[in-house]
Nucleic acid binder design. Structure first.
Lengths: 246, 246
DNA sequence: GAGTGGTCTAGACCACGAG
DNA sequence: TCGTGGTCTAGACCACTCA
């Protein structure tokens, strides 16, 4: 635990330390890369690779033409897995704005497997982009079989909750949710939408929900910025084989 | 959807295409970086940054001193969340070797919160490194309160299953498991252990298991290589408020 | 020791943001 | 226009693998 042979890591560690000790405060701009390079007596390429480390850690945000900025302590995004919507969600949501674009599509590609429907089955796609204040929050595409989706939804719905509520009355309660979490580099579009660099990984979550007949009634593909998102899952086991009281 | 101004992306796209069309097959070595650089008439630095893109996508594996290799279609690592160990796990594990190092530690830092114990509570740490064939698979540190852990474990246990079995008899069945999934860059140690580049994100999973008294009996910190791991969670809802049959 | 990737240098030129 | 970060070059030298 002392492998620090590279200038890159040494410089990253030094700047990281300055940030965590408050010598450089959140929101402040770092000296320019040229200035930092000469201060550390390294080339600009080396200095940039050090900043890339910090950027990957979500500590520094690079803005082309402006400078490198220390990130504000990030309000973390928590994706809560499992069966939702049955009870009122403990929202605790602050100023979370969700914009939804509703379109009609046909089952294709992985959707066929996820929803367990034949190809070209009519689906409704909800394309959701949520913001918390200024900063983009998450990106999700939710697919629902057409016969389970409300028909009278305007193309631009102001309220995601409304859609959720409408969905809830159209189908039996959900009984099983399967979720798969992976990480990968963002596509260029995702990087732009979430305003993260393509160097930063995203959390990608595939969610499939089935009702009590076993029918898959919803598939969701969510993408969250890796530097401030985590996914949380709670599993309870009712101790079936032992038949304990609680 | 046509932003490809950079040599880096163009070269990455070209090589990616050669891989996906089978012109370069899995397991094969790419030409040396110097050779590729001259073929594309770019500098080695630019070519290396193109390879870094493919590496981030898990398509290419760089091996210092040997070359750049096309990855085999990745055998994905699936972390299965939820309550385990109660039923025999559907293993499907091929040649998964797990080496375990057992040490005694005291509760500190985040372990205090995770296990809900006072500071310096005696714990047993199981440091697990699993391999599948040649390639490192995952890294985990599991913490168990000392009074629930077997005492007669040799420092180097050949068999992780044995430890699991011993743990199982020492405590009531688990009833609740909470898991948090995040992604971040690997520490240098993690990158070395998992043999991934520090450019590749890892999936970090924090798992806390409680028994039927509500006591936290186990905390696990797992790290999986982001290019081939995913975490899978299944949640069932017994439709308590409606009291449906199934 | 030959060949490979890993790190780094000292520049050049381009693209973006703000005044 | 000026200062910033983004991309790139043409090398140098080091570290690792393998015969």
């Amino acid at each position: 635990m002392q492998p620090m042979p590279s200038h890159r890591q040494a410089i990253a560690a030094d700047i990281r330390n300055q940030i965590s000790t408050g010598q450089i405060k959140a929101g402040e701009r770092l000296p320019s890369e040229a200035r930092l390079a000469s201060r550390y007596t390294v080339s600009t390429a080396t200095l940039r690779s050090a900043l890339a480390v910090l950027q990957g850690e979500g500590l520094v945000e690079k803005i082309h033409g402006k400078g490198n900025y220390v990130r504000y302590p990030l309000r973390r995004i928590t994706y809560v897995g499992g069966v939702r919507g049955t009870k009122a969600e403990p929202p605790a949501e602050s100023a979370l704005r969700i914009s939804v674009r509703t379109t009609n599509v046909q089952a294709h590609g992985q959707l066929i497997d996820l929803l367990r429907v034949p190809a070209d089955t009519p689906l409704t796609e909800y394309f959701c982009l949520s913001h918390e204040g200024e900063s983009p929050h998450s990106l999700a595409r939710i697919y629902v079989p057409r016969d389970l989706s409300p028909t009278d939804v305007p193309d631009e719905s102001p309220c995601f909750k409304c859609i959720e509520a409408q969905l809830a009355v159209l189908r039996p309660p959900l009984t099983e949710v399967r979720e798969r979490v992976t990480t990968r580099p963002p596509t260029p579009e995702e990087a732009a939408s979430l305003r993260i660099s393509s160097a930063l990984a995203v959390l990608a979550i595939t969610r499939v929900a089935a009702d009590n007949t076993g029918r898959v009634v919803e598939a969701g593909l969510s993408v969250l910025p890796g530097d401030r998102a985590d996914a949380f899952f709670t599993t309870r086991h009712m101790t079936e084989e032992k038949g304990k009281s609680e």
